[in-house]
Amino acid sequence: MYRRNIEIEWGRVAKIIVALVISCAVGYFFQPMVSKNKDAVNTVVTIFSILAGFLIALITLISEPTLRQAKDWRELQMMKNTIERKLLRQKILFFMYLLTLGVALSTFLIPDNFECARMWVESVFLALATFVFIASFGLPGSLMKIQMERYSAAMDETKPSILKDIDKTIESD
């Protein structure tokens, strides 16, 4: 049986746990601030709609630097898992944006006589919006990394042949 070695990034796990704790606290303690407050919900909906559009643009950029950087089929094959991981993280974040928007919509659909259900949905909405907002702080870093990979790929493409020959010589030694 094939078993895949999974390396756990403990720093990333710690960030997720901290974000979950903060999000749950915000959802619990600040729920009264969004209760029946259409302006607050609409503001969050607007923010996440913009972030979702930005994220789609980011997803379209993720694989381009790798495609340009790879020298042959073997290198592309080796980079495939890295690209899949990057895309998966962005895909999960995008679906979380959509989930946040869906929960926001549900806050408007709950009848007034279901006050307890409304409070829970508003708490979940606020906690989810907080968590996804915190998770979005990684987007600028992702975009910067992609742009730097594009820059490196462009530098490699335009590097004078004499420097490429020197690099090959160094690699073979």
Results as ranks from 00 to 15, higher is better:
P32A: 03
A52S: 15
L67P: 03
G27D: 01
L61A: 14
D39L: 06
S35M: 12
P32D: 00
S49I: 02
L51W: 13
P65T: 04
S49F: 01
E64Y: 06
K91Q: 08
L51P: 14
R89G: 15
F30R: 08
I22R: 00
S63K: 14
I59Y: 04
T60R: 12
Q90P: 10
R68G: 01
V41F: 01
L88A: 09
Q77H: 14
I56S: 00
T60M: 12
T60L: 12
T66W: 00
K80W: 12
S63I: 05
V44K: 04
M79Y: 06
I92Y: 01
V21G: 10
S23L: 09
F30Y: 13
L51R: 07
I47T: 02
C24E: 09
A57H: 04
I50A: 11
M33Y: 08
C24G: 11
Q77M: 08
R68E: 05
C24Y: 15
E64N: 14
L20K: 06
A19P: 12
M78Y: 06
V34A: 02
L61F: 05
L88R: 14
L61V: 08
S49K: 04
T46K: 08
N81P: 15
L58S: 10
T46P: 00
R89H: 12
E75A: 15
F54T: 04
T60A: 11
P65I: 05
L87P: 10
G53D: 05
K38Y: 08
L20M: 13
I62C: 07
I47F: 00
I83W: 02
V21M: 09
W73G: 09
I62S: 04
I59E: 06
L67E: 11
E75R: 02
I47Q: 03
I59M: 13
F29E: 05
A40I: 03
E64G: 07
L87N: 15
S63A: 09
N37E: 03
K91H: 09
R74L: 14
F29G: 04
I47R: 02
V34E: 00
F54G: 11
S35G: 04
A40H: 10
A52C: 07
L51F: 15
I50F: 13
L61M: 15
K86F: 01
L93A: 03
Q31V: 08
A57I: 15
V34D: 01
K86V: 00
R85P: 09
A57G: 15
V21N: 05
V26M: 07
